[in-house]
Design a protein around this nucleic acid. Structure first.
Lengths: 216, 216, 216, 216
DNA sequence: AATGAATGAGGGTTCATTCAT
DNA sequence: CATGAATGAACCCTCATTCAT
């Protein structure tokens, strides 16, 4: 589990904190279950067992299984979005740096690991039939896309480009998606560094006049 | 439904043909259900109802629900693979034509429509936890990837390239994946022609010395 | 159980008959359970157990517990109504005979026994909060009331009366209700014959010029 | 709500009074819930919510749900009985006045309103399967019956009667029951005055030599 | 006195599967 | 081949009750 949720730091908190703690604990257990079993086989009983709580308590905190799943998706979405936004803030103003920061953020270990990727695909797989999932996934994608496009336009203005910003952004985003999918289906032998390097090569191909590696 | 399964041409067939007919009918109903309900809400009863058959009859033809789902995935896989393979055969020997043929195949209406895309993502979403799905999906991807890579290498030999074949192939494949996902999540306002055009722009960016549109 | 439902006469029937048979069997089991446990403690598991069937099969035949309860009420209502209607037909045209026939019908052993009375009160007790129950109970009551009123009016025309028909009908109906309730709450020492005799005394009090016992 | 239970007069009481206040508050909430939901759907959570207290607090005051229901029935019973007993005391010694006082008491607004009638029937509906309810309901009925019978005997001795006291009492009691039930099932268009007038007509029919309206 | 967290048994219902017809 | 009845396990959820605070 990427986020340590132990009993030790549980005691001596107030009610509200306890409640938040339990919810987080249950969301992590839900992610575990979806990863290992898929959404269609994830049950409240298994989630409760994994979290070490009673099944009734799960309902007490989330009211329904569906609400728990939605909260889990929100949690993932928040983590994903804040991750690349923080990376962007740290990157400064240079659009080249910003572009590379977004790419790297998409492969950050906290985000890009088998457990999380697996759950993202599980939600995508159900998104067609569950409008709420689609809405959250769509908003998440859109924000990333829009930001990426703005950066590509900035680069194009500064350094020119061999590809219009719209298509360039689509290429970068697509390549990330493709690599995520590769990782899901063909997990063995996937190297994070090689993935990032491949996208960077594409950047240099599309923007030949950019200072490659200027970030370092 | 893209494949017409009517009662009219049902009579006057021999046993084996009838059986094949029923199976195809049920697989189409399964695709419908997964599209509309998601895998987790797809039940034998709903599949049977959609196919206009009794529930017992479904079991008779496929033995179990899991087998039906697997057959459905195989059906999709076969359709997908034979589609690009036929496009490849029709394209001739010029690697430029072949590359564009594969791209276009990936967006062929028979393959690239909401119903089918939706089901593909549903299977990917469950693939992590069901080895059989993963195996089929993986093999399907691998064959496409390998062929794409070979074509890119051929182009590179003939015309040179701004990107090594491995990365180029990854770019094309990734862009296709990304566009599929865009289509799934953000279906409104998606234009097939624009999607193909975007990938073609990337081709010309990576392979500037290729005769764009030479295919025609 | 007042209606014999044995396994013997079950075999060798067609599908539709079997289904009707099962439904009847389950309704009888439901009546048993409501009688013994009350509606609030009546569960599908107990109904199924009493009927000797699986719980899933109950749902198969009635779709839901609520539907089963409603069908049970309809069954009771039908039995009650057809009982006094048949008695009325057998009574002929003399309103005196008809009045006494309706009274006697209300205390017929098939209707007026602890098991059935108990279930009627159970439904009345829930009727306030379940419109469907109320509707059925209301219609049942109304039909009985209207018929009783018409008879009282006929008697009044023929023999005169010490009480207007409306109030007379209300008295007879009320006395029946009161005796039902006495029977429910204070079952020990209740005698059917005495109950009927008491209502008959009231008839003679209100209609002194009627030929008492003319029916015999 | 017929009995005002406000927060205002809650403060500045001693322990015992506070406790009594809370109990009364919860009993009123229970009556509300049974009226609106029926006994089978009444839960501690809903009672607590309606009373504006926490669920744990309900258990604290009544120990168990069953105890709360029993206390509610006792509360109703006490209210019902003291109502007609007070009416009797106010009526004086004339049995004619006393009879009419009992009838009017049975339709007093505090007793005879939809909310209370609904709850009485709910308890009757469960009484068959819960001996304690039956006992309370039975005792309540019996006391009323016995008193009514004694009054009828007194009238008979003074003025004569067209009906023996036993049957006359049964008639009055039955008519009350019948009107209660009419009110439950067919609430629209029920007029309290007409109900009382109807029973009074029956009195005059049975006791022609009594001074009708002598009470005034 | 009062709260909300926690439990666990049992509720109605779903559903893949089996089977007699 | 085809059907619908039948099963039983597992599902999500409810709820009376307990308990720490």
């Amino acid at each position: 589990m990427s986020t340590p949720v132990t009993e030790k730091n549980f005691a001596s908190r107030n009610r509200k904190q306890q409640s938040e703690f339990r919810k987080r604990q249950l969301i992590e257990a839900t992610i575990d279950c979806i990863d290992k079993l898929g959404i269609s086989q994830t049950t409240l009983a298994k989630i409760a067992e994994r979290a070490g709580l009673s099944q009734g308590n799960v309902v007490f905190h989330f009211h329904s299984k569906e609400a728990l799943l939605e909260q889990t998706l929100h949690y993932l979405n928040h983590e994903y979005r804040s991750n690349w936004q923080q990376a962007l803030e740290a990157a400064g103003d240079d659009p080249n740096d910003r572009l590379r920061a977004m790419i790297e953020a998409a492969f950050a270990p906290k985000i890009f690991n088998r457990r999380k990727i697996s759950v993202w695909f599980a939600f995508w797989g159900e998104s067609r039939s569950r409008p709420k999932y689609k809405q959250v996934c769509g908003a998440s994608d859109q924000a990333f896309s829009d930001t990426l496009l703005a950066i590509c336009e900035a680069i194009e203005r500064q350094h020119g480009a061999r590809l219009v910003a719209r298509t360039a952004a689509l290429s970068f985003e697509g390549m990330i998606d493709g690599l995520w999918q590769n990782f899901l289906i063909n997990d063995a032998g996937f190297k994070r560094d090689q993935a990032i390097a491949a996208v960077f090569e594409l950047i240099e191909c599309i923007y030949p006049d950019i200072r490659a590696g200027a970030k370092n």
